[in-house]
């Protein structure tokens, strides 16, 4: 991790108009006074109960949605709708079902106008990185959830964006696969330490993966606290059972209690 700021979000706000049955609309303030700095090469996790606005912030950062107020700079520049420098991994994989696995990996490269041969080479290399080289001619529906998510990660890595956004990527997976994927992601990330903004509502997942964890409060959603996770890297499977890990987890829990963050809605953390 460096001290260069990759993403700077200041006083970001976003509200939606909710329409009731009578057709009257009332505003729902999702984000307000949302401040966050993301350092270059950092693995930062946004942690918060569902509905607090994590995806909303991610979407804004990805250029898929617009903030109503505040400022977000990526590499010092305002966010543009079209950018070749970011990638998102969604919970639902978002693979194109009519394309083979290899062809799915080529999408980002295709958009960048890279030649056919080069595309294929890069796609193959990245499929190998996630251990799925043998599946290049399969279709997404032939793969398990964990494999599909690996493909989705490889697809983003293939075009090498400077900023990786991951929106609860492992939430749909079973417990064992989820733990495997966390370790897999750490292994991949260690190779080039891309800046990652990761979203989850699992405390354990956040501790295991992150350099820093940003806790969000809900209604309105904003950052309440940022905690450094000083577990050594590279982190492996065993670290889950380490004394330090349980110490950090315990500290976080008591901090959440002290901060009165652990209200009803935070039950989702367990």
């Amino acid at each position: 991790m460096t001290d260069i700021i990759k993403v700077r979000a200041r006083s970001v706000s976003r509200k939606f108009q909710l329409k009731n049955r009578q057709g009257k609309s009332r505003p729902l303030v999702v984000l307000e006074d949302f401040d966050l700095d993301l350092k270059e090469g950092e693995f930062l996790t946004l942690l918060g109960p569902s509905g607090c606005g994590k995806s909303t912030f991610l979407n804004i950062l990805a250029g898929l949605d617009k903030a109503d107020g505040g400022e977000i700079l990526v590499d010092g520049n305002p966010i543009e709708e079209h950018s070749f420098d970011r990638g998102i991994v969604f919970q639902s994989y978002a693979l194109l079902p009519w394309r083979t696995i290899l062809k799915n990996l080529e999408v980002g490269l295709e958009i960048r106008g890279i030649s056919k041969e080069e595309r294929r080479d890069i796609a193959r290399k990245n499929l190998e990185r996630v251990g799925l080289a043998a599946y290049e001619n399969q279709y997404p529906h032939q793969l398990s959830g964990g494999m599909k998510q690996r493909v989705a990660i490889a697809r983003v890595l293939a075009y090498d964006p400077g900023l990786l956004l991951m929106d609860e990527p492992f939430a749909a997976l079973d417990a064992q696969t989820r733990e495997d994927m966390q370790i897999e992601l750490l292994r991949i990330w260690e190779a080039d330490k891309k800046t990652i903004l990761f979203v989850t509502h699992s405390i354990d997942e956040a501790i295991l993966l992150s350099d820093r964890v940003a806790f969000m409060s809900t209604q309105p959603g904003r950052i309440r606290e940022i905690i450094e996770i000083d577990l050594p890297r590279p982190r492996t499977e065993e670290i889950r059972n380490s004394v330090e890990f349980s110490r950090i987890r315990k500290n976080l829990w008591s901090m959440l209690q002290d901060e009165a963050l652990l209200n009803q809605s935070y039950g989702a953390f367990i």
């Binding site: 250029g63 950018s83 999408v107």
Partner: peptide, 17 residues
């Protein structure tokens, strides 16, 4: 599925693509 469109858009795709 709108997530397909959003995903491809996040990779930098234009409307034609």
């Amino acid at each position: 599925d709108s997530v397909l469109i959003r995903s491809v858009k996040s990779m930098g795709a234009n409307k034609i693509y």
